[in-house]
Design a protein around this nucleic acid. Structure first.
Lengths: 137, 137
DNA sequence: TCACACCTCCTACTTTCGTAGGAAAAATGG
DNA sequence: CCATTTTTCCTACGAAAGTAGGAGGTGTGA
């Protein structure tokens, strides 16, 4: 990818240089004006680069959100299970999750077991990892 | 890849066209010349924006690497401890980590305990979370 | 060379996690 | 309304994880 970019950049620049040189040989006095145009163009390219750098901040948040919703559905996790998964990812224990959600620890254990089954994980750490890989978390 | 080729081909052609036009318009009336300069500037700003978009794909990998190294040092984790942490983040059990590193599970437990102390975590899941927050993982 | 961090390993113990196998009340979708 | 899912909860057990405290070997910087 990057290689391609450089190659084509090089080609574009080469073409411009050849054009400039050809103009010099053809028009003579016209040359300084052409050179000015050339520098002018480069200046505005730089301006464009700077603009792009400042205007490009939020990169595709909607698409990610949509994918996340879909991924959650595909994973087969229910609402509460997903909630438990996110709290697991926060590093909470079953007990802490129970307190956070106002349910019993035994309930949390049930959810965790279901999560492990649905995500095909053996441990909660692995479930979190899989959740991350699925962009769910 | 193909997209990139087309885009850069387009850029090259655009540049040539604009240059060609510039030759003719240079000799036109004063008004159209100013209009041309305006469009010319905008065109090259757009070119700059596109260039920036394609050249800014690998965004600061070195800086991130440096920060990561620093963060690891700041966390106080040793080499092996860091290795164990990354394997924990992969969702591996102590036993699996031991097999992966060709050391005993008891050794892994020692490392894990040290990691938890150094990262001020109570569980391995929390250690992983903290490691992520510190851009270590 | 000596202190010190690091890596390795151990036992014994406590705690947390996860499984198995229920059960019953809500919620939800036809 | 009925079937299904979801959520809630339980006990009891086994499996990991984590703690405490020790110990020996290696390497490194002062």
């Amino acid at each position: 990818m990057r290689q391609t970019v450089f190659i084509f950049s090089g080609i574009a620049i080469s073409i411009l240089v050849v054009f400039e040189l050809s103009k010099y040989s053809m028009f003579g006095s016209q040359g300084s004006r052409e050179l000015f145009v050339f520098l002018f163009a480069i200046a505005f390219i730089l301006i464009g680069i700077v603009l792009q750098r400042f205007l490009t901040k939020p990169p595709a948040s909607e698409t990610l959100e949509v994918n996340r919703e879909e991924a959650i559905k595909k994973s087969g996790l229910s609402k509460q299970e997903f909630t438990v998964l996110t709290l697991m990812a926060e590093g909470l224990s079953n007990n802490e999750i129970a307190n956070r959600l106002f349910i019993q620890e035994s309930t949390v254990k049930s959810h965790v077991s279901n999560i492990l089954m649905k995500l095909d994980a053996k441990r909660r750490t692995q479930a979190v990892k899989i959740g991350r890989d699925l962009q769910i978390i």
